[in-house]
């Protein structure tokens, strides 16, 4: 099939998923609720006064931020594929849309959902925990790159989990060891950004994160059709 048609198909899948998500709000609600719950729980004890006195607060906040993002993402990112398998609509997609277009469409939706989630979590942390971000640019780059890496590693896992029978907790179990490198660097770089570290200090971490992102995306593109047609 010609190239423009392929991208059009990917866009059609993404558009359809957004339409459905806006009508059911299943993934968005689950993720938003998780993010809010986490932020509120953290702020009870580690609110503005409790944490700001602690010299290690940047590290603690960076870890908490990524815990909120990771587990909230685990709640919602598998939805797009699990829904297709559970409602048996995956067959319709398989018959009508090229596999790679399905993948790119779903990846796009997951990226958008993650961007919304990261924005929400950041705003909650700023609002409830009085977080100040010393190096805003670095913070934004870390979140964007981290989100891109997270989506790259987990979108294909979502396909895999949708094909397995025990869908509930399996996604997190499968995803955690794979995204461990990403989480470690993301926490480190976020800590730097919060405490006013320089770009030079974050450089090698960001490079590693970019390399990881590329590797995961390439592997996912290469393996997706096999999972999808399994």
């Amino acid at each position: 099939m010609a190239k423009p048609v392929f991208w059009q198909a990917a866009w059609a899948v993404a558009y359809k998923d957004l339409q459905i998500e806006l009508r059911t709000r299943y993934a968005l609600n689950a993720m938003a609720l998780f993010a809010v719950t986490t932020a509120v729980m953290v702020s009870f004890r580690l609110g503005p006064l409790g944490l700001s006195r602690d010299p290690r607060s940047a590290a603690t906040l960076a870890v908490l931020l990524w815990i909120a993002i990771f587990f909230a993402a685990m709640n919602g990112l598998s939805r797009t594929f699990v829904r297709e398998e559970e409602a048996h609509t995956a067959t319709l997609l398989r018959l009508n849309v090229p596999a790679l277009a399905v993948y790119l469409g779903k990846l796009g939706v997951n990226l958008l959902i993650l961007a919304l989630l990261e924005t929400l979590v950041t705003l909650l942390f700023i609002g409830l925990l009085n977080v100040t971000i010393a190096n805003v640019g670095l913070f934004l780059v870390t979140l964007s790159l981290g989100g891109l890496a997270l989506a790259g590693a987990t979108t294909i896992l979502a396909t895999l989990v949708a094909k397995a029978d025990g869908k509930g907790s399996l996604f997190t179990i499968l995803a955690f060891p794979l995204v461990l490198p990403l989480l470690i660097i993301a926490v480190e770089t976020t800590e730097l950004a919060l405490s006013g570290g320089t770009w030079a200090a974050a450089g090698s971490g960001l490079q590693l994160l970019a390399a990881y992102t590329i590797a995961e995306h390439v592997a996912a593109l290469w393996l997706f059709e096999r999972v999808w047609e399994a």
Binding site: Q19, I20, T24, A87, H88, T89, T91, L92, L95
Partner: peptide
């Protein structure tokens, strides 16, 4: 019967 439809979408959609 294997092909299911999207409950949330209309016929035209």
């Amino acid at each position: 019967p294997d092909v299911a439809l999207y409950r949330e979408l209309s016929a035209l959609e």
